[in-house]
């Protein structure tokens, strides 16, 4: 049996995007969808990572930095560098993030549930941050922008009603490697573009270690399967390990519920989202 060839470097080229076109598209999206529902500003959770940094940059370009409210929400174990990186991104646009430390409320809760593991704690933190963002959005009269990328959304690597919650998500159709490309094109700080991706839910957490996947490869597998609708056999024939392809497909299937609204038991003639179908931008 011949050894499985590694994906060639050129396979990543499949994900190459025209960053100028995407910037125009996403800034237009933010401006249009925010303004037509009667708002003019947004709240963004700014973690110092590449996803939220890109969203902050896009929002500043789309709406003007004075209409962007970044919020940094560290926990006691969060890396100090993360907050500094978030500040650096905001500083590029002449703004400062609000800082809301979540340690007190998270610790108060888990004092009563000391047995909770890292995932429960991480999910609780993500949902705590969500409630803060929605509260800040009410205070500022703003909409919450989402920061989940397409890779996370497809793999289910996010907390339902936590970091996955938002009013508008400008980067949900960009794979992680495309987020980096956009971040580079928009001139995000080098540190933000070069540090290891992390949800920063506990010290030393690494996305790629936790997932057991490398973004540079998993993004291409997802692109072949999802965007190009290639079969498993085709993707394997392109040089990707069968076990990896199977793992990716399994994760996408297993997390489908996270990408859908809650299931409603059908009783009436017209059930929301089944046979009551209206555009979200109804009348806008």
């Amino acid at each position: 049996m011949s050894p499985t060839p590694r994906p060639s470097a050129s396979s990543v080229d499949a994900l190459e995007i025209d960053t100028a076109v995407v910037e125009e598209l996403l800034c237009g999206f933010i401006h249009d969808e925010v303004h037509k529902v009667g708002f003019d500003s947004v709240v963004v959770g700014a973690s110092g990572g590449v996803d939220s940094s890109l969203v902050v940059a896009l929002a500043c370009r789309a709406l003007g930095a004075e209409h962007v409210y970044p919020v940094t929400m560290p926990y006691s174990t969060s890396s100090v560098q993360s907050e500094e990186d978030a500040r650096a991104v905001c500083a590029q646009y002449g703004i400062e993030p609000e800082v809301e430390n979540i340690t007190d409320q998270i610790d108060a809760y888990f004092t009563r549930h000391p047995d909770a593991g890292l995932t429960r704690r991480g999910n609780k933190m993500a949902r705590e941050r969500m409630t803060i963002l929605y509260d800040r959005s009410m205070a500022h009269g703003s909409l919450v922008l989402g920061t989940s990328n397409k890779t996370e959304l497809l793999l289910g690597y996010g907390t339902l009603f936590g970091d996955m919650a938002s009013a508008l998500n400008p980067i949900g159709d960009l794979y992680k490697t495309q987020v980096y490309a956009m971040g580079g094109a928009l001139g995000l700080p080098v540190r933000v573009l070069t540090k290891a991706p992390t949800a920063d839910l506990w010290t030393g957490q690494s996305d790629e270690e936790e997932l057991g996947l490398r973004y540079a490869i998993v993004d291409v597998v997802l692109f072949r399967l999802i965007d190009e609708r290639r079969s498993r056999a085709e993707v394997v024939a392109m040089g990707f390990e069968a076990a990896l392809v199977d793992d990716v497909m399994r994760r996408v299937r297993a997390s489908q519920y996270k990408r859908r609204p809650p299931v409603i038991a059908k009783v009436s003639a017209r059930t929301i989202d089944r046979d009551f179908r209206y555009p979200r931008d109804w009348g806008r």
Partner: peptide
């Protein structure tokens, strides 16, 4: 609707 933003193809 614009879709497909891969490099070289514009929209």
């Amino acid at each position: 609707p614009g879709r497909g933003v891969l490099r070289g193809a514009a929209l």
